[in-house]
Design a protein around this nucleic acid. Structure first.
Lengths: 319, 319
DNA sequence: TCGCGCCGGCGCG
DNA sequence: TCGCGCCGGCGCG
């Protein structure tokens, strides 16, 4: 992709101002290759920031330099695509091995979109019966108990996790227009688009018991308040799985066992003991039910400092 | 309190740098009076930022001006103390009315500390039996199921809510060294200290069924990710109440009903429809249990733009 | 336009 | 020193 061209505008104070073109910068810097696997995510992001500052410095009229805050969103997206590409390739490799071994199972990395409509919520991946079961669980303000409590609705709410790993048989994979052997060798605009396009191809094709491997959520860095975002996403995922398992005959065996290994958190800048302790939190969905065993919101928090560490972490997850 | 004196240090780039003295600024600006009730929290915080910048500008050697980020923590604390003082006075007024009516009930606003040790977790307010019940619920890595799942522990984890409103009989109130009629007319250092000191006076004195009115958590502004911090705190509080109610004979009647009106969220900069929808989220603790009725993580999200709006909101809560 | 989900840089104990 | 919990300023669709 060509060097990004900034649109310089005046801000309210009359200063020249430009937006950091986050996706364009990524595909400009990594058009030909992925970041080296032994470079830390820290360094990869620092490099992208430096390249961005150069583009700002060469633009006329010169916009004011981007602040720390203006990189926050970019840092997150940059990390997600780099991380995602390496997981994608890990799975392509696994798929190739499976093919060699006449194992029909193929895995796919689905980068989840922003959840700003029902269509974009990850549950819209589910086949109609399961999706409908979740929608039927919800109650609106015509419900007696909801009204009596002075509420407007009763439902589960969460932001989408960053990604989900699904599994299909090779035939389904092809039918959905996906190539299970395709690797990602660079972050060109086309590859970014490809990663983003998987979600809509798989909408309505997924069942919890056949196709769901696990969710992954990634953070560049953790803070004591933001780490509970991991916990809530995991809690929500587990609650949804529990609901489906208890309301439909899914033949998944023990529900608590089935809920295990379904939600993983990654920190690309390490974490401390308190962060790790927090991830040992129970899902509240299991504590009040005498029939439910132990279920955790987050199955593991990984410290993943470089792309090359992804392989070991994925080995733990995919076992 | 005297005008704050900044300690100017060199940062790693050799620039003169100083910390924003958040609590000192608050008690310097509001030593004689509370902010006017019809001033927006936005304006109150902007004023405090302006006063801070003046102190920076008059300091020699002149430190670099505080950035947006350096106010984040201050904005939160400033809002919590101003909000807290007005709720405190609302309760003092209610206590006076109760006294007039020969009603022995007195309410107290407890600003909760940072939860960085077991002693600081809000559950340490609970009497021994209830506290121990919660600790006994936890499992460590000597537990078979915990070990089998590859985890280190099984427990509930959350940050402390910002505050809790408790109720006692007047006699207890006095015994614990509290004055139920005391009002807060300014944010002098002494008053800030007084608000902070209530928690430790009430540690070990509280039961869920007799003394807990509700929790309040306050945010200056909401973001789509940060709003789930409200949800998780509420979910955690409700799960703890449910646990205590199911494991001890508390005679609270229907548990779902008892869980209602226990956790409220406040946004001091308003919210949008999506934020409000998110607050209609079920506690996952109730969805998997056939014996549990509907329970919400957050009982209501209030938009509270000025201190004078606190009265109406508290009227809704305290009814 | 605005909703999503991103995250660094704090002040304090 | 470091852990807590704070929150504004984004880029993008």
């Amino acid at each position: 992709m060509a060097k990004p061209v900034l649109k310089v505008k005046k801000d309210k104070n009359g200063k020249n101002c430009a937006t950091v073109p986050c996706i364009e910068m990524l595909s400009y810097v990594y058009e030909k290759n992925l970041p080296l696997p032994d470079k830390s995510f820290n360094e990869i992001i620092k490099d992208l920031q430096e390249e961005t500052k150069k583009v700002f410095a060469k633009t006329k009229p010169r916009p004011k330099a981007p602040t720390s805050n203006s990189f926050n969103n970019c840092n997150g997206r940059w990390a997600e695509y780099v991380f995602g590409a390496y997981v994608w390739n890990y799975l392509a490799d696994k798929n190739a091995t499976n093919k060699q071994n006449n194992d029909p199972i193929r895995f796919v990395y689905v980068k989840l979109p922003t959840n700003d409509s029902k269509m974009d919520a990850w549950i819209s991946l589910l086949k109609k019966e399961q999706y409908d079961t979740l929608i039927e669980f919800e109650r609106d303000d015509t419900d007696k108990q909801v009204k009596a409590a002075g509420h407007k609705a009763f439902r589960l709410c969460s932001s989408n996790p960053d990604s989900v790993i699904l599994k299909f048989e090779e035939n389904d994979y092809i039918q959905y227009g996906l190539d299970s052997m395709k690797t990602i060798d660079n972050l060109s605009g086309a590859n970014i688009k490809m990663m983003d396009s998987v979600f809509s191809k798989l909408a309505g094709k997924v069942t919890i018991e056949e196709n769901l491997k696990c969710f992954l959520s990634i953070k560049n860095s953790i803070r004591p308040d933001r780490r509970y975002q991991f916990v809530h996403e995991g809690d929500d995922v587990k609650a949804i799985i529990m609901l489906l398992c208890t309301r439909l005959q899914l033949n998944v065996g023990n529900i608590s066992d089935f809920c295990q290994k379904r939600f993983y958190a990654f920190s690309l800048n390490g974490f401390n003991g308190a962060d790790e302790n927090c991830m040992e939190t129970a899902t509240t969905a299991c504590i009040s039910s005498p029939v439910m065993g132990l279920i955790w919101c987050v199955d593991k928090l990984f410290s993943c400092l470089t792309p090359e560490e992804i392989k070991n972490d994925m080995d733990v997850i995919m076992i």
